[in-house]
Amino acid sequence: MDREKVTIICRCNDVTLEDILKAIESGIDDFELLRKKLKIGFGPCQGRGCLVIAARLFARKTGRNLGEIISNYTFRPPLVPIPVKYFTRGGEK
């Protein structure tokens, strides 16, 4: 078993531990860039399942401060996915 290939960090987008380690090795030294390149937390869960794990891994590998990494993350609405049909009538005030 290739451990790193089957350890799934981001379930929504199938980002594996191997993907993250390879990206860091290739020179990605900023967590936001790592996230954006690999699409960690871009899926339906918007990072609920993977953000902290990915941040921890990144902090460990690069020596950065975990708290700083997590504090830089921005939270935007909607906090849960909303079907478009909620916005196809009325509401324009």
Partner: peptide
């Protein structure tokens, strides 16, 4: 979607996929 891995119920509160 990418690796075609089987998934089962996980969070049970509508927060994952």
């Amino acid at each position: 979607r990418k690796l075609n891995r089987p998934r089962g119920p996980f969070c049970m509160i509508g927060k994952c996929s």
